[in-house]
């Protein structure tokens, strides 16, 4: 397996060239649902990164003894365990955030970013690249969620991280941005923007 990318490559790829949100278009459910404010987006991305790294570690360690036809079962079992731990952690120590994110933390179990990284990277590569991959993809996811959340929170509530940025004296909140259509519109516009930058780069 010499043609596999190195740890550093894996890390970098996750952030920009294979960004989960804008390049792979994976994990759209939390991307659309929890990006109404930046804090929620950061918590969501942190929880996902935790599960991603832990699942990658387990799968990478066990990759030689996993039977190929049972691998999905192993992946799901591992992911579900770590998601439950993350969910309990939030409920115990960040109850307000947990209430805000609601069912979307348990739903990380079915987030396709994690299972795709287990399949693409961790089940084929050793521990170090797998960990680097987990962090890289996690950071990429954070970038994706935050970019959408910044736009939506700023336009929809006039705040950033809960602090008022645009005072109500001269700013009228655009309610649609915190409603579901706002998520789709923001995602679409940002994706078009990043594709545009990408195509400009290719031309040069």
């Amino acid at each position: 397996m010499n043609d596999q990318p190195t740890a550093l490559e894996r890390f970098w790829r996750g952030i920009i060239p294979e960004n989960p949100t804008y390049r792979q278009v994976l994990g759209m459910c939390p991307t659309l649902a929890v990006t109404t404010n930046v804090q929620g987006a950061i918590t969501m991305a942190a929880a996902t990164t935790f599960v991603l790294v832990c699942a990658n570690i387990m799968v990478s360690l066990l990759r030689k003894i996993i039977k190929p036809h049972l691998r999905i079962l192993v992946f799901t079992l591992t992911i579900a365990t770590f998601v439950t731990i993350a969910d309990y952690f939030l409920q115990a120590f960040m109850p307000e955030m947990s209430a805000q994110l609601g069912p979307y933390i348990p739903l990380i179990i079915v987030n396709c970013i994690i299972i795709s990284r287990c399949e693409v990277c961790a089940s084929k590569q050793s521990l170090v690249p797998a960990i680097a991959d987990g962090f890289g993809q996690g950071l990429g996811f954070l970038l994706g969620l935050c970019s959408i959340a910044v736009v939506r929170e700023l336009l929809g509530s006039g705040t950033l991280m809960g602090y008022t940025v645009l005072s109500e004296n001269f700013w009228v909140n655009c309610g649609i941005m915190i409603l579901p259509p706002g998520a789709f519109l923001t995602l679409g516009c940002l994706m078009a923007f990043f594709n545009w930058i990408g195509s400009k780069k290719q031309e040069n």
Binding site: I65, I66, L70, L73, V74, L77, T78, T81, T84, I85
Partner: peptide, 13 residues
Amino acid sequence: LILLMAALYSAVL
């Protein structure tokens, strides 16, 4: 392997 992991994970949980 799965049975073993299930047991281990249950213990953790």
